[in-house]
Each structure stands twice: as C-alpha cells, then as structure tokens.
Design a binder for these strands. Structure first.
Length: 432
RNA sequence: GCACGGGUGGCAGAGCGGUCAAUUGCAAUGGACUGUAAAUCCAUCGACCUAUGGUCUACGAAGGUUCAAAUCCUUCCCCGUGCA
C-alpha cells in the first residue's frame, strides 16, 4: 500500500510537490521514473541508477516479464525488487501499451503523439491481421510473443494477476491505448472499454489482496524468506543498505485515464476512473504532440487531489515542465535511455547528436553545467568515439547523463515548487 | 622466365556487350526516436547544373573492335598462386 502527502502547491492550483510513501521507500514528487522494461535499466546496474542517476523508483513491464523469464520466475525469486536487486519503489505497466505498440502501431511509423496537422485515419479494423502482433477485443488482448511468435491472451484479470506475481509496489490497470490517428468514435470506444476493464481490474485486485491476507499476513506477500536466509543475504551485502519492507506489503493498483486529444473524452475518462477506488492514477493514451500539457490539465482537474497522478510515457524536458505545472506527480519515459543509446544527449539548450562529425575532437564535457558522473569524467570526443566504435560503454555513459539530466530537472522543479520559484525555473529551463 | 588467376567508387565485393554513375555490405554524412518490437530505424553517399530531368568524368594504363564497352581484343604496369 502507498500513501501520498502534498507538501507545497503552485499558485495555479494544479502543480504540487509531495511524497509518495511506499513499502520500499519514499518518492519525493514530482519525480521522473526511469523505465526498466525487462527488469533491467538498459546498460545500467541498479547501483548506477541509484547513485549515479539519483532515481527514486523504476518501472518494469508486465508483458515483457510475463514472456521472459515468466512472472512465476520473478515471483519465485522473491518479487521484482529482489530479482533485479533494486531496493527502491517499483512500478509495473500493465501491458496495455503493448496493445498499441504491437497492434495498430506495429510495423508503421506511428507514435502515440501526433502532430496537429496529421489527419486522423481510422485504421484499427481493416488491416490485414498478419501485420500486427496484438488484437484487441471487448474482453482483452491477444498478443503474439515478440520472442517466439507464440500466442498469449491478456485480460484485465490476468494482467493484474501477473502484476501481483511480479510484485511491484505500484501496478497499473489494464487499459486500451490506441493510435492518435484513430477517429473520435474509436477513441470513445477505448475510453469506455478502459473504464469497464478498470472495474474488472479493481475487482480482481481486491480479490487477490483478500486471498493474500488469508494465508500470508505474517510473512507478507513477498516475505516468504526464512530469517536465517535473510540474515545470510544481508551479510553478503556490503554496498547496499537494506530497505525495511513492511510485512504487509502488497501492490497498489492505479487506474488509467484515456481519451486521446479530445477534451470531452479526457474529462469523461478522468471522471469515471477518478470516481473508482484507485489509490492513484495514470494518464495514458495518445496526445496532440504540440500540447500534451493542456490535455493533462483537463484530466487533473477532474481527478481527486489527494491521490498521485502519473503521466505514462512522457519525458521530454518541455513536456515534463509543462506536465508538472498541470498537476502531474510522476513520469516515466524510455526517451532518455533510448535516445542515449542512439547517440543523443540532452543539454540545456536542447539535444546533441554525439555521432555528428563536429564532436570527434570536442574535448569538453557533454554538458559543462551538468554534475553527472559522465560529465565530470569524460569528454564529448571520448563518448563520441565509443559510439563510433560501437563500444557498450557508450550506452552506459550516455544513459547516465540523460537520466541524470532528466531526473534532476524534475527534482529541481520540485524544489522550485517548494521554494516558490517555479516561474523562474520554467523560464530558465524551457527549451525553445 | 613460363602457366594460371586477378586489378571496379573510402574499404570489401557483385556485375562480364546495351535497362551501369554501376547490386550489396561496411565506413562516412545528416535526421528521427515520448507507458522499449529499438546498442534501432530513415535518408544521402562521383562532380556540376536553368534538378521527379540534364551535362561531364569514371570500373589499373594506353590503344583497338562495335551503333554501343566495367564487360570483347592487343600491348604495357601492378598483385596473388604454382612451376622453373
């Protein structure tokens, strides 16, 4: 279970700074949550994520872990934290996004963010079935495995069940995320379906909690470890302080809002999901790329104030700054790590592509203003060399920088809310 | 010295009379990436131009055959292998 305290607010009434308390520690909010899809933050160890990046939590994916190594294995390992050796708070996404990325978006150059000028074209039903790896119906989603092509069925109930097995602190309801190219009518259907699925998720979640209470209350859901084994494990650990896990630790379920770029649908979804018995919310779905923050504002105005709100899959600097002032508490996004692995690094003015010829003999740090491990110790020329040489360390150093940059941008936003200097912070950090 | 086999764009390596400014891979140059299908993908990659088209220079060098040659012939220069 989690709890949420609000410490300070922006004058606009939407943005706030707070703390999410979890069984694995606190998340001061707003916070950026790096994505560890397959229970690993690509190219980083958990120690790097904690010490070099300064991340407070991480987010893994249900679909991926279900396929590999299997949620039963994660459970057998003692849950996600123990399996991946991450002691802090965790989330799992429900697999709802994969209905989109492996469905309508599969094999196409479609992102969940659309330019305003893009014409919506409904392409959900009349595609050839072989062109995608996910098919959605009223009851759930049929996936093909990206690993071996085998067929798997996800329903709201099975997603929640798998997430309980994986054992993150916060888990998401199974929602339907669809392409921004879809028609208004299709978006409306996704909102209605997501609400029905949310009810089913919540119901099943409560049943699972009750079941757990019945026979594991003394040990905790993921505490089935003898005291002798625990002592032995702790004795081996010399670099990492153990976080005390509450004995009653169980996942907390967050509901997800859909509605695309349409104000009425966003508000409808937020009212429906917001009225349900979730302990927090995720804002998902597709957006008008030019104005994510406006849609976020529509939603946050409808959501209960005292529960945390997570903006799913958004993480460009400007989107973070505008998201925070419109009421978002936490974000996750693959952009910092994916872009880093592809040679892109954030600087205050925007983004550099380290593969550009001009960096081969640029011996300055990636960002002279940055205090991260990479910037304190390496030059642009060196990291550029690593990228050209296809050395693995390139991904590590660039990921450390990008994650540090983004995580600390949000941390500074938090401090600015507390200090009452958000406007200055925004003016200083918004990229033109 | 003789006998084979070769010399193609930055590299490797296709092509073996017209549809070849030349397949492909690598490298290079630029771009994209927002709940990870992603250490991925896309574009460009001889020069010049009144550019969904045109002109010029190019497949070791020089000649030749042909309406037409990277592709056939001759000589020369290199390289590899074998025999002396």
């Amino acid at each position: 279970m989690i709890s949420f305290d609000i410490k300070a607010r922006l004058p606009n009434g939407r943005g706030r700074a707070g703390v999410i308390h979890t069984s694995h520690g606190d998340i001061p909010t707003p916070a950026f949550i790096p994505v560890a899809t397959k229970a690993t933050l690509k190219s980083l160890t958990p120690e790097m994520l904690r010490d070099a990046v300064g991340a407070d939590a991480t987010l893994a994916n249900t679909y991926h872990l279900y396929l590999q190594p299997g949620s039963d294995i994660v459970k057998k390992a003692g849950g996600l934290h123990r399996f991946m050796n991450w002691q802090g708070p965790t989330y799992t996404d429900s697999g709802g996004f994969q209905a989109f990325s492996l469905g309508a978006a599969f094999g196409k150059n479609v992102s969940k963010l659309a330019q305003v000028k893009d014409e919506p074209t409904s392409d959900d039903t009349n595609d050839e079935p072989t062109a995608r790896l996910a098919h959605v119906d009223d009851e759930g989603v049929t996936f093909k495995s990206i690993i071996d092509g085998s067929t798997h069925r996800f329903t709201p109930e099975s997603s929640v069940e798998i997430q309980h097995a994986i054992g993150a602190d916060m888990i998401f309801a199974f929602d339907e995320c669809i392409s921004p190219q879809e028609s208004y009518e299709r978006q409306k259907l996704a909102v209605e379906r997501t609400t029905r699925w949310a009810e089913r998720c919540l119901k099943h979640h409560k049943e699972l909690l009750k079941e757990k209470e019945g026979h594991t209350s003394a040990e905790g859901a993921f505490g089935a470890e003898t005291s002798a084994r625990r002592s032995a494990r702790l004795a081996k650990r010399d670099t990492y302080p153990e976080v005390e896990v509450r004995p009653s630790f169980s996942p907390t379920l967050l509901g997800i809002i859909q509605g695309g770029r349409h104000q009425d649908l966003r508000k409808q979804s937020a009212r429906e999901i917001g009225a349900m018995d979730f302990e927090g919310f995720g804002i998902g779905g597709s957006f008008d790329k030019a104005d994510i923050a406006t849609a976020v504002g529509w939603v946050c105005d409808e959501l209960p104030e005292n529960k945390p709100r997570h903006l799913l899959g958004i993480g460009e600097p400007n989107d973070l700054i505008l998201g925070i002032e419109n009421g978002i508490d936490t974000f996750d996004c693959v952009a910092p790590t994916r872009i880093a692995r592809n040679g892109g690094v954030y600087v205050k003015q925007g983004r550099l592509n380290l593969l550009n010829a001009k960096f081969v003999d640029d011996f300055t740090p990636i960002d002279p203003l940055c205090g991260c491990y990479t910037c304190k110790n390496y030059s642009r020329a060196y990291v550029a060399h690593l990228f050209r040489a296809k050395e693995m360390l390139a991904a590590t150093l660039a990921s450390i920088h990008n994650l540090y940059f983004i995580v600390h941008l949000v941390k500074r936003a938090r401090q600015a809310i507390i200090d009452g200097t958000y406007e200055e912070f925004k003016k200083e950090n918004l990229v033109k």
